[in-house]
Design a protein around this nucleic acid. Sequence first.
DNA 1: CCGTCGATGTGTATCGTTACACACATGCGC
DNA 2: GCGCATGTGTGTAACGATACACATCGACGG
Lengths: 324, 324
Amino acid sequence: MRDVAVEAGVAPMTVSYTYTRPERVAAATRATVLEAAERLGYRGPDPVARSLRNGSTGNLGVVLGEHLSYAFEDPQASRFLAGVSQVCVENRLGLVLIPATGAPDDSDRVREAAVDGFVVWTTVDGDPVLDAVAATGRPAAIQGGPGRDGIVTVSPNDRDAARAIASHALADASSPLVVSLPFDRNRAGGLLRGPETSADYPVTRSRLEGFRDAIEETGRRWADIPVAVVPRNDRREGERVVRDALEQVRPDVVITMSDQLAAGVRDAVGEAIPVTGWDDSDLAESMGFASIRQSLYDQGVACAQIAAGLRTTVEPPVWSLTRR
Amino acid sequence: MRDVAVEAGVAPMTVSYTYTRPERVAAATRATVLEAAERLGYRGPDPVARSLRNGSTGNLGVVLGEHLSYAFEDPQASRFLAGVSQVCVENRLGLVLIPATGAPDDSDRVREAAVDGFVVWTTVDGDPVLDAVAATGRPAAIQGGPGRDGIVTVSPNDRDAARAIASHALADASSPLVVSLPFDRNRAGGLLRGPETSADYPVTRSRLEGFRDAIEETGRRWADIPVAVVPRNDRREGERVVRDALEQVRPDVVITMSDQLAAGVRDAVGEAIPVTGWDDSDLAESMGFASIRQSLYDQGVACAQIAAGLRTTVEPPVWSLTRR
DNA sequence: CCGTCGATGTGTATCGTTACACACATGCGC
DNA sequence: GCGCATGTGTGTAACGATACACATCGACGG
């Protein structure tokens, strides 16, 4: 920039203003400057230097508690990210993806990220990456929890929603099979019996609690309920885990934690056993099973607005039960 | 950092080395420095200042020629991005998403991105965003074209592949229906007759050319061939467009440009009319239609490596025909 | 003809870091 | 006791940009 200033015969500040506040500089001068820049192949202010001087990067960091490719494959994460990206586009913010796989250098990644704020996709309790995020002192929001000081939690009341849909499922049935998202980072799959509802993922935990609430309300004992856990939120995993489970149990309804899983169940059992999903996506509509409607897109928007400093609090996201 | 140096009673450089090259500084001094940092709440070197000084940001920019949410919904884009993100993770690079929707400020976004290199997801011919990318002078790669000076093109020979699969499809059939990806940014859908193979998207164009090659080889006139164009690479769009087309034409084979579309065709016509896909995904295997195998994941890896400066050229990605 | 105002250009200081070259001490072999 | 390698600490000088306050000048009302 200094060179351009010399070439154009003006002060560096004039060049700076030419780019950042064109109206502040006379049209003639502006032309001279741009011409000089053209001659020298100068492309405009360096974004990094600008960030340093201004103290803001114009970037939002999105922490994904999974291998990055997960973000592109899980439909729920996708919807959420779509909401985040919408805010970024509207506000001309960059979107920086930060993987947090549970490795020790996750925190470094966060510390070294050149961003103004963080959006965190739900992770496990006590994830140290949350400490790293909070330590930056920058605005941050997390979808689905866990809650933490310094990070705004954006999460619907999953427990209530889970209870509602489970009650609905149990209206005409008596022996449910629960299909659950992973409990923890190990992501061990398998069939359990009325497990402690102590999953490390708060989202999984709240839903389990809600299911248990509903089941106990009907007089059944949670300890007797089969719970099949998938290693991934994936339709085929849902199909597989249910096939396996059916070798040991004979449920008359299957209660799942996502539409993908519910679709997988349908793949396995057809209409023979009713199933419920979660998220009320196209799948739920086209295959015709009950689901919980909650907008992950809207939650993405909310999180991004917080991270961008556009707001500091949000109403808890709403949910509703779509009966089918 | 200066403050920490004072607090610890050492030179700023010592503090810097404490973080970036700990082995360069005596253990005792290091401890003193870290202690002082702790007292002052210093979290380590500022990434932005570091980038400025070092001249590199540790970020890769990915230009998506679509609304960002598209990246999270199109399975092909997802696979590609998964490959890109793999390279980022391995090399500790950040991943910055840059939307390019065709709006005039796309170029600004590129110019203002604090990244070391660019990966571009296939876009239309003459997209000005490519000029902006090339103008940065940073390493860049584009998947699927269009080709351009200063940007490495990573693309299989789509035309040959298209000819191969179309020939395969025409072995036992005589009147094909082609289902095509969008021609241009307008994304108008609809049914055409042997259109000029002049789509703005080079990927669409090459495949059309290949289909035409194969069709003309069997003695049919391209001008007579019905081509249904979808506005989006989406299973349901595939279903819809074929339903519509079947009101006007009676094909005995459907040749599509993606497995999603092929699956949509199956949804519409079942096994009544054979169909071919593209990408050889799980869908192709489970539904049992022929497809072109090419790894978008690997292409993502290749593009990212180029953008990261890890290599400067790539072999053309391989493709193969999976007959079913 | 003076005072004031708006429009426009310019110096200064600083954002937080690090490459580089150098200073100095220590220890070791001979 | 000399020469030399090694291990540690320290100035200097940028990296590229901009906030802020100030200087200058012509215009214009009274």
